[in-house]
Amino acid sequence: MFEKTFLKACFGSVGATLVSLISLTIMGLVLSKIAQWMFFGAVFSGASSEACRDATGACWVFVKENFVFFMYGMLEEKEYWRAQLFVSCALAAVSLLFFKKTKTLGLWLNFLGMPLLAIAIIYNLFSPEAGVDRDSYGGLFLTLFVAYFGILWAFPIGTLLALGRKSGPVVVKFFCLFWIEVWRGVPLITVLFMSSVLVPYFLPEGVELSKLTRAMVGIVCFSGAYMAEVIRGGLQGVAGGQREVSSALGLNWIQSMRYVILPQAIKIVSPAILNNFISLFKDTTLVAIIGMFDFLGAVQAATKNSAWLGFAKEGYVFAALVFWMFCYGLSKLSSRLNPISES
């Protein structure tokens, strides 16, 4: 706001000097504590909690020894390839969406290919005899898996809900409004409780869904409602008259939405969609409460392991760093997508 040099801004007046001193004290205290704990007093080598007996700082051996558990949960070592293959394919499929030429292919892969892949290698429905315990998936893989499908299926559901709320006939409009507001009005944790406790009751006898599937159903409904509001914002942002122009060009309602309105709407709100994804990614940690070993759940379980008692701090700090890297990276991407924030 005022053009000043750095030093003048920091120590130019009594008030500024005071603020500087307070800030510097806070920074100095916090940073030196963190540096001492994380690096200088920390133990990096060893194989058991014995190695950290005399440590004055963090015991990173805990993280090192539990690393595969944090990544894959209880999955057996010979089944790691399933998780690795799936995550690489998902990464590839998602990155296709960012290039104009491969967008259509990317959409097909994400919405048709990846669910099939999930059924084939994660759920392992085609060759059940080569059994992998579906409840053994966990760790960061589970977090990514849930977040990926959660945001993916939120798109079609959210789009339908938004269109229904904006321009459906009365009954549909009311239904969409009700549906959106209910999911947005309740906390995710009650949704997860509902999907883990109530959903089994509503299924016919003999049909059973795994815990993972039930949680996914709840998360998709939840994130679909939030996505609906984001997309509705985009629909409102599309210039008026676009619909009239497209019908003058002879497009019917579905075509005009498909080729004219929705592409613009989604482009406008793409930063908001990414932000939505960041929230969802953070919210997937809640599946730990219904007893699933996602990344946070795995860390939590490891800190309760009697061989590694007393290293909760290390576990949580590691988890926080990983989550921070993901979310901060995505939020940077989102602000790069935002044409307003560039100026």
Binding site: I278, K282, L286, L296, A320, F323, C327, Y328, S331
Partner: peptide, 9 residues
């Protein structure tokens, strides 16, 4: 950028 549940934990 850190999940709330993690902070509470």
């Amino acid at each position: 950028n850190i999940p709330l549940l993690l902070q509470i934990f």
